[in-house]
Computed example of a mutant assay.
Amino acid sequence: MTSIISRSDAPASVSAVTSTRLADGRELLYFDDTDRPRRRPSKDRRELPERGPAGEIRYDALTGDWVAVAAHRQHRTHLPPADECPLCPSTEARPSEIPAADYDVAVFENRFPSLGPEFAAAPAAPGWGTRGIAGGRCEVVAFTPEHTGTFAALSSRRVRTVIDAWAHRTEALSALPGVAQVFCFENRGQDIGVTLHHPHGQIYAYPYVTPRAAVMASAAGRFHEAAGGTATLTGTILAGERADGARMVVEGEFFSAYVPFAARWPLEIHVVPHRQVPDLAALTGAERDELAVLYPDLLGRFDALYGSPTPYISAWHQAPVDPVLRRSGYLHLQLTSPRRAANKLKFLAGSEAAMGAFINDTTPEEVAARLRDARTGTA
């Protein structure tokens, strides 16, 4: 049964949300480019098998990391032709993952999830041999009903709808039992490893704080404590980058984008709000409006550097759910690409893959200058 979710009293979101269920019980949400929901047929006409149980997570005692084991994902859809794309709207002849004949933005539970569908926190006090349920949720975000195109080419209004979807799902998933961290991201390009050509991203709700987030949270917490709770690490770095200027790419009223001082990747940009917020859900309407223009412009600059599509990973770093970690948490976007030249990629080989010690083939200052001069045609 389709239901209309009431909009929050907060003015930040301007997109109507409609919730429904797919044939196997997975949740699907439509986010509209207007604040009034469009009426759509909600029936998923497919006969789908019953959902399987969650996989497992195993503890690596050498590093303190959790590793998800999801062997069922070996059978997931891989680069299908356009007429078999699961993210295109359904037709009478071929129903897809999205039952509607048209949509603006759609978010649904992944049919082949790394985490979930059960919810369970990672086991406490783990050691060698500890395993647990891979609880949480994995969602797919279809940015557009069009099978071809890029995020950079979306209209500002559509980008705003995607931002509203990210914020909505961040807030909703963070409130679910056992969820420790919510991660919104997009992998773009076969060189990155995408398995669907249709423009889309993903959202993971983890049952543990991921290794990268744990390292950053620890550093942020130490800095915040040393400053007596009066300053944040990310905010201080942002102020330093804006004062220096050598690595700045774009400065807006609410956000700034720069190549970080110690960039790991040949192409890397950090997008940081000018005020401390823990996650996307905390952004105001004005902040979301500016981001809807600034973000696709940056993606366009990546493509403009070499005049052809650049593979990238767009990763939203949000504060973990833990209230203590959120005190010093600071939302920021990390946009990276392994493209180090028009026809060359940076591969994570011995030093990076084995030791985690990155060696960059470009200088942050040079990359920032080139990105400032890039003409995107998206603004």
Results as ranks from 00 to 15, higher is better:
2 T>L: 15
4 I>S: 13
5 I>V: 15
6 S>F: 06
7 R>C: 01
7 R>M: 13
8 S>Q: 09
9 D>C: 04
12 A>S: 13
13 S>W: 04
14 V>D: 09
15 S>G: 11
17 V>E: 14
17 V>T: 15
23 A>K: 05
29 L>K: 14
30 Y>E: 13
32 D>I: 03
34 T>E: 09
36 R>D: 12
48 L>H: 12
54 A>T: 10
55 G>N: 01
58 R>C: 10
64 G>H: 06
65 D>F: 03
66 W>G: 10
67 V>F: 02
69 V>P: 01
74 Q>Y: 03
76 R>L: 00
78 H>C: 09
81 P>K: 07
85 C>S: 13
86 P>A: 05
89 P>H: 12
90 S>P: 06
91 T>H: 12
93 A>R: 15
93 A>M: 00
94 R>H: 07
94 R>S: 11
101 A>F: 03
108 F>K: 02
109 E>T: 08
116 G>L: 03
116 G>D: 09
118 E>W: 07
119 F>H: 14
121 A>L: 05
122 A>K: 06
127 G>F: 08
128 W>R: 13
131 R>I: 01
133 I>Y: 00
136 G>W: 04
142 A>I: 03
143 F>A: 00
145 P>E: 06
145 P>K: 04
148 T>W: 05
150 T>C: 04
153 A>V: 07
156 S>Q: 13
161 T>M: 03
162 V>F: 07
169 R>M: 02
172 A>P: 06
172 A>I: 04
173 L>W: 02
174 S>I: 06
176 L>T: 08
178 G>L: 01
183 F>I: 10
184 C>E: 14
188 R>S: 10
188 R>W: 07
193 G>T: 14
193 G>D: 05
204 Y>K: 05
209 V>I: 15
210 T>W: 13
211 P>F: 04
211 P>Y: 02
213 A>I: 12
214 A>M: 07
215 V>N: 07
215 V>Y: 10
222 R>G: 08
225 E>Y: 06
225 E>H: 12
230 T>G: 02
235 G>E: 10
236 T>Q: 04
238 L>H: 05
238 L>A: 14
240 G>F: 01
241 E>W: 04
244 D>Q: 06
246 A>I: 00
248 M>V: 15
249 V>T: 08
249 V>R: 05
249 V>E: 01
249 V>A: 10
256 S>E: 06
258 Y>G: 11
263 A>L: 09
267 L>K: 07
269 I>G: 01
270 H>W: 15
270 H>C: 10
272 V>L: 04
273 P>L: 05
273 P>G: 11
275 R>W: 09
276 Q>N: 01
281 A>F: 03
281 A>E: 00
290 E>L: 12
292 A>H: 12
295 Y>C: 12
296 P>F: 06
302 F>W: 04
304 A>C: 10
307 G>T: 08
308 S>L: 14
310 T>S: 11
312 Y>S: 13
313 I>R: 15
316 W>G: 00
316 W>H: 13
325 L>H: 03
333 L>G: 02
333 L>A: 11
334 Q>Y: 00
352 E>Y: 02
359 I>F: 10
361 D>Q: 14
363 T>L: 15
377 G>I: 01
379 A>P: 01
